[in-house]
């Protein structure tokens, strides 16, 4: 059996100012899984994400990506394997044009010339953004920018796609279009969100991180169906939202 794509064990971390964010997180994500990482603000979700690609190194415990432990000397390879899409696409898209931006990651991996062009074209096609390749990012709509941000990471052919609040600030149509794009990708996904319907629509498994530890881990239906559990961790489904009805239409 192959190693899990993500294997986090006993991960604890305190920021340099002494504030402790994670108190022993255990999380395994197998190849091909789509996992929603849920939790209230301040639960440590972003801190956990920054450990997955070696921006933070574990204070205690370990993070292993497809068999490779995250350590100072493995960081470049870890960052290729774990593609993080940050919340604000204006932070993610920093190059003068969309094409340059999508090429940034693979160029850092050493790709050049036609090989690089092919990688960029492939990533933009995967998110349906081929026609904006030569535009500057600030001339795109927010929804388009979010999709291009996904492409910038896909271009590195990561083993796992980590999305930080992918649906935030999107209008309903852009939110749905992004869901279609994400649903069409054949890749392992870890989606950090507190948009519970989005998690229900796209992920078959849900994990709740609260107070720096994992407090629930199971099928999305079971986790989101437990209203007491959700309430205990400041999570709520929208008023009137019916999980059973949604799954009849979409099914994760």
């Amino acid at each position: 059996m192959s190693a899990p794509v993500l294997d986090v064990r006993g991960l604890a971390y305190a920021y340099p100012d002494g504030r402790q964010a994670l108190y022993g997180v255990d999380l395994r994500v197998e190849r091909g899984e789509r996992v929603a990482l849920l939790g209230p603000n301040g639960a440590g979700k972003t801190t956990l994400v920054l450990h997955l690609n070696g921006i933070h190194l574990p204070g205690r415990g370990s993070v292993t990506v497809a068999g490779l432990p995250v350590a100072p000397d493995t960081v470049p390879e870890v960052r290729r394997r774990v593609g993080v899409v940050f919340q604000d696409p204006d932070d993610q898209l920093f190059m003068p044009t969309v094409r340059d931006d999508v090429a940034f990651g693979p160029a850092n991996l050493g790709l050049r010339g036609p090989e690089l062009d092919a990688r960029v074209a492939e990533a933009l096609a995967a998110v349906g953004m081929t026609e904006v390749a030569d535009r500057p990012p600030h001339h795109l709509s927010y929804g388009q920018r979010r999709r291009v941000a996904v492409a910038t990471v896909l271009a590195m052919r990561p083993d796992v796609l980590v999305l930080d609040e992918p649906s935030s600030n999107l209008d309903p149509a852009s939110r749905r279009e992004l869901a279609v794009v994400l649903g069409s990708l054949d890749i392992t996904v870890l989606m950090v969100t507190h948009d519970l319907p989005y998690a229900a629509e796209l992920c078959e498994r849900a994990v709740i991180l609260s107070g720096g530890v994992v407090v629930a881990d199971g099928p999305t239906a079971a986790v989101l169906g437990d209203s007491d559990l959700l309430a205990a961790h400041r999570l709520e489904l929208p008023v009137g939202f019916d999980l059973a009805r949604m799954w009849k239409h979409h099914g994760p």
């Binding site: 920054l50 690609n53 921006i55 470049p76 960052r79 290729r80 593609g83 993080v84 940050f86 604000d88 204006d90 932070d91 993610q92 920093f94 190059m95 003068p96 094409r99 340059d100 090429a103 940034f104 990651g105 160029a107 850092n108 991996l109 910038t152 990471v153 590195m156």
Partner: peptide, 23 residues
Amino acid sequence: ERGERVHLAMLSRGYQGSLPQLG
């Protein structure tokens, strides 16, 4: 602060100190 976040995003995509040659 945006600069710091952009830097994080750059590191996440393998930035090692210089921009690749623009096409």
